[in-house]
Amino acid sequence: MNRLPTPAPVVTPTTQAFWDATSEGRFMLQHCVACDAVVWFPRNHCPECFSPELSTFDCSGHGTVYSYTVIRKVANAYKEATPFVVAYVELKEGPRIMTNIVDCAPEDVSVGMAVTLVFHDTGAGNALYRFRPTSQ
């Protein structure tokens, strides 16, 4: 069950491919051909070595909570959804990405907990990537 709003993200020519893939349930990461780095967030260059040669691959969808906060009060589109959880999830592939933790009471979230990727359709041709606790 998803009770959070699903605002459509800002999509730019640089990030179009990433967001298009979310509509198919894929979370795409970039890989630097020159230095082997995994790149996050999507760019047209590698921020490690500044090479423009990047390939893409699909992320496993598994990660752990690196840090989180429970937002108690907010004046934006999430106003009716408080309290809700914003977190940095560390993907198995390395990058720590900002996201929400869903399908879980805020008080049950903890640093280090295993989480799995889910997608929530925005209605704008893409989906928001969020994470729920990994089923035992």
């Binding site: 999509v11 937002i71 809700f84």
Partner: peptide, 17 residues
């Protein structure tokens, strides 16, 4: 696009992390 859609609305949320 990767930071503004999660409901963060101010400095307290970010510093809390």
């Amino acid at each position: 696009g990767f930071e503004s859609v999660w409901g963060m609305a101010g400095a307290p949320h970010s510093y809390a992390l």
